[in-house]
Computed example of a mutant assay.
Amino acid sequence: MGTDKMPAALEVLQQSFKQAMRGFAGAVSVVTVADPLNESERSGFTATSVSSFSATPPMVVASMKATSSSAALLQRTRRFGVNLLREEQQAIAQRFTGFGGEAGLERYGSDAWTQLLADGAPVLVDAVVAMDCEVDELLERHGHYLIIGRVREIRVAQEAPAPLLYWQGRYTRLAETRAC
């Protein structure tokens, strides 16, 4: 049975899964990757897949497509930044998707970037949360990498600005919170 056609039941399940996952609101982060020895060699991607993995030691987990322009650079440098975006930073999120044709250093635009550590990845100066991480493990499964990263340094914005969210296929913001 050498057919490239996906069984109808699997195709239906995959479409249902995609629709179901749109119901999970996710905080929007930009994951940055750079060669600390070559300032012009930078990449990065937008992710809603960033989450905590462990508090002891502090670790995060994220996923990216194995075909991402950031994959080879991350494998080589083993360093990445996590930038939780503010609700007004939708343009940054969009630029890091690469859907507009931006690649590499171009994705960084004219936004203010810094490093938390001398050998670290770039982080946004005004991110809600910025973390410098080191790859602990990269697992390749089903065309994606699961990135497990050890947090090396953290900066949290003082005024606790609202994060940018992604839900039902679009960027959105938190509603006013009420005590339950």
Rank of each mutant, 00 (worst) to 15 (best):
M64A: 05
S68E: 02
A93N: 02
G98D: 15
A72H: 07
Y166N: 04
R86L: 05
V156N: 03
P122E: 06
R107M: 06
T172K: 10
D111A: 14
G143I: 08
A93S: 07
V151K: 12
R152P: 00
V123L: 02
Q168F: 00
V135I: 10
A66E: 08
T97N: 11
P163W: 05
Y166L: 10
Y171D: 06
D111I: 01
V151H: 04
Y108K: 09
G143C: 05
S68P: 13
A91F: 08
E88Q: 15
T97L: 11
G149I: 08
R152L: 15
A121G: 05
Y145D: 01
A162C: 05
L84F: 00
E137M: 11
A118F: 06
Q75K: 15
H144F: 05
R76V: 06
G120E: 10
G81F: 04
P163I: 08
E88H: 15
P163Q: 00
R76D: 10
V82G: 01
T114C: 05
E87K: 02
R107D: 03
L84R: 03
Q168K: 14
V123M: 12
R95D: 02
T77P: 05
D132W: 13
R78N: 05
R152I: 08
F80I: 09
D126T: 05
L139T: 14
Q89A: 04
R78K: 15
V61K: 01
L73T: 06
P161F: 09
S70F: 09
L139H: 13
M131H: 01
W167C: 11
L74C: 13
S69Q: 10
R152V: 06
G100Q: 12
V82T: 02
V125P: 02
D119S: 06
E87R: 01
D119Y: 01
Q75L: 06
V60D: 05
R107E: 02
W167V: 08
L85Q: 00
I147G: 10
Q90C: 13
G169R: 03
L138M: 11
A160T: 14
E140F: 08
A91M: 08
Q168M: 02
T114D: 07
P161M: 13
V156E: 12
P161N: 07
L164Y: 00
D111M: 06
Y108S: 11
V123C: 14
L164G: 05
L116I: 14
G98N: 10
E87M: 04
H142C: 13
T97A: 10
V60Q: 06
V60W: 00
E88K: 06
D136R: 11
L165N: 10
K65R: 14
A72M: 07
Y108F: 15
V60A: 10
I148L: 15
L146T: 15
I148Q: 13
A130Y: 00
L146G: 03
A112C: 12
R78E: 10
E134S: 12
V135H: 06
T172Y: 10
T97H: 12
M131G: 03
L84S: 03
T114A: 04
L165H: 05
S63W: 01
G149Q: 14
